[in-house]
């Protein structure tokens, strides 16, 4: 029997993987994709909980998360291209002048 708990567990695992990925990867696009992974994991959790309670609110929220994620990707990638055009580098470590 697969209960929503299993889905939540899977969601947790995917979330952690995505989180570690954000910390470890240097390419900006890959970092973005790890963030997307985290968002997806959260979506899964929402939907699982919707199933648990027997309501649709979780799905609606997952829907909205999707919308917001899309908007975020759009803007983020636009920023990335703008930066890339001038700096010719997509590494997250390069803009490091705001330091001690």
């Amino acid at each position: 029997m697969i209960s929503p708990g299993h889905y939540v567990a899977l969601s947790v695992i995917l979330f952690v993987i995505g989180g570690v990925g954000v910390l470890v990867r240097r390419n900006a696009i890959v970092v973005f994709m790890c963030v997307e992974l985290m968002l997806n994991a959260v979506n899964l959790a929402f939907v699982a909980f919707a199933r648990l309670h027997g309501t649709l609110d979780g799905q609606v929220i997952a829907f909205f998360v999707m919308v917001v994620a899309a908007a975020e990707v759009v803007v983020g990638l636009a920023i990335l291209t703008a930066i890339f055009r001038t700096r010719r580098s997509a590494s997250v470590d390069d803009p490091n002048l705001l330091k001690y």
């Binding site: 209960s3 929503p4 708990g5 939540v8 699982a48 199933r51 648990l52 027997g54 309501t55």
Partner: peptide, 11 residues
Amino acid sequence: IGPGTRTGAAY
């Protein structure tokens, strides 16, 4: 976390 329930026909 108990077993899931199908959404009712309320919606």
